[in-house]
Amino acid sequence: MCINFLTVNKQTLQDHFETVVRSPDEWPEEAYQDYAAPIIVATRSGQRAALAASYGMVPRRHIPPDMKHYSTMNARTETIAERPSYADPWQRGLFCLVPMHAYFEPNWETGSAVRWRIGMADDAPFAVAGLYRAWQEEDGSRAFSFTQLTVNADTHPLMKRFHRPEDEKRALVIIPKSSYDDWLTCRNPEQARAYLQTHPAEMMDAAPDPKPVIARVKKETEQEDLNGSLF
């Protein structure tokens, strides 16, 4: 599933997503595992607020040293209620939006992985469904992390084109703008499942977008690929 996406800046959060930015922190233009990225949550009064959070529900720094590193960047909606990493936030309704300009998936139609950029047909920023949680850090500070929710996309006209031919096809859950507040304030996990749908293919756009060689080599040096390929 998605291991890389393009974040939005604070101005876009305020203008397009009508969100109060509460974090003084900055974040990079591209997010990978354990990178900071903005998420949108609902305050107790129902307002939208943006926080900086770590990409991956369980940050590597919180994985015990004797345990194998594992990826929690994407959560399967079919099993989210049973998985230890996600069950508590799911049951508590800790739903968030992950705003972005685009995300990337590998296309194998040529016989090898080619990175494709996926976004909206009108090139507008959009938001995908996520879960978040808080962590108490060793220095006493409070930090946040998040994961993105995915659904089966075996029959989706666009998303079925990605990943290896033998692999199940998955898609991020794109939340329509008209449903932002309903998703954020929903506290019933079973009702929340009504939002977990694939997005209409005609409203999306995708095209090859290979990473420049220098950037790709640098990234491969920095980060272990937990999904089997760094396209």
Rank of each mutant, 00 (worst) to 15 (best):
T150M: 13
F126W: 09
V114I: 14
S179H: 13
F126R: 10
M100G: 03
H199D: 05
A102W: 00
H163D: 06
D181E: 14
F95R: 11
D154A: 14
R115I: 02
F162G: 01
S179T: 10
W90P: 02
C96N: 12
T198W: 03
A192W: 04
P200Y: 09
K211E: 15
P200N: 08
D88E: 15
W116F: 10
N107S: 09
R170A: 14
L97E: 01
P89K: 15
R83A: 15
A153N: 13
G93I: 06
W135I: 02
E202Q: 12
G111A: 13
H199Q: 10
H163Y: 11
D154P: 02
R193T: 06
Y132I: 06
E166R: 12
S178L: 14
P106G: 08
F144L: 07
P106Y: 10
E168V: 14
Q136K: 11
N188F: 00
D88L: 14
E105V: 08
K177M: 11
V128Q: 03
P200S: 07
A121G: 05
E105G: 10
D122C: 12
R187L: 04
V98H: 01
R161G: 06
E137P: 00
E109F: 04
D88G: 08
E202K: 06
T150W: 03
I174T: 12
S178W: 12
H163N: 13
